[in-house]
Nucleic acid binder design. Structure first.
Length: 215
DNA sequence: GACCAGGCACATC
DNA sequence: GATGTGCATGGT
């Protein structure tokens, strides 16, 4: 069986086991972008608190993030950790959106995916996973998001790609699956769901829906 | 108290 | 180009 069929089989198993995950949990594309930055190496529970603070202050808006003091931004996002860096990253991203797109995400979403990807990667604090999360979950572009969970799970199930090589992992999935944003969205969310339930650092394989599957 | 969480930039070799 | 380290909170 070729990889693509096995990957789709895994996808179907996970979808049946857990159901649609309804990602990304956010009320707007810009909120997805903020969450993508804040969740870097951080538990989502802490990110959620930080986003609640931003919502309570009515700050989910590129103009506002770009305009407020760094101190005020830090106090809102403090629960998400790494707040000094993340405040700078959010300001840089917001400034870029304001200056290049007048703060209008509709304009931004019309840019060619590859061009926008490079543009966002050039901003400080936005690496490949963060940018791809934004492209897929905020802008509905068909790019496959690779994260620590994806590498860990598929590594354990036989995919041999060097740990740090993001683009090789991404090419593997994107070349083996139909280029479909809805599929990429749900698949990645299901991988995270599975990892959280069974496949953190210490795997719990008893009763795992993927038990015994090797690619 | 140790370990972990939906990374990234930067220094050093 | 590979590898190591700082960043920081809150849950288990």
């Amino acid at each position: 069986m070729i990889y693509g069929e096995k990957l789709l089989k895994i996808y179907k198993i996970l979808l049946k086991e857990y159901g649609p995950q309804e990602w990304w949990p956010a009320d707007s594309p810009f909120e997805v972008m903020i969450g993508a930055v804040l969740t870097q190496n951080t538990n989502w529970n802490n990110v959620s608190r930080a986003i609640d603070n931003l919502k309570n202050e009515d700050l989910i808006c590129p103009h506002k993030i770009a305009g407020i003091s760094k101190r005020k931004l830090i106090s809102a996002i403090r629960p998400s950790g790494f707040y000094n860096q993340k405040a700078a990253y959010l300001k840089g991203l917001s400034r870029h959106i304001v200056e290049k797109y007048s703060g209008d995400l509709q304009k931004l979403s019309k840019v060619d995916t590859e061009i926008l990807r490079d543009e966002l990667l050039a901003l400080k604090g936005l690496g490949p996973e963060t940018v791809d999360s934004i492209l897929l979950y905020a802008l509905n572009q068909p790019v496959f998001v690779i994260d620590a969970y994806t590498r860990r799970i598929f590594g354990r199930h036989g995919v041999a790609i060097k740990d740090s090589d993001y683009s090789a992992w991404q090419k593997f999935f994107e070349s083996q699956l139909p280029r479909d944003a809805k599929l990429f969205n749900e698949f990645h969310a299901l991988i995270v769901r599975l990892a959280k339930e069974r496949c953190r650092k210490k795997p719990d394989c008893q009763g795992c829906p993927l038990k015994g599957i090797v690619l």
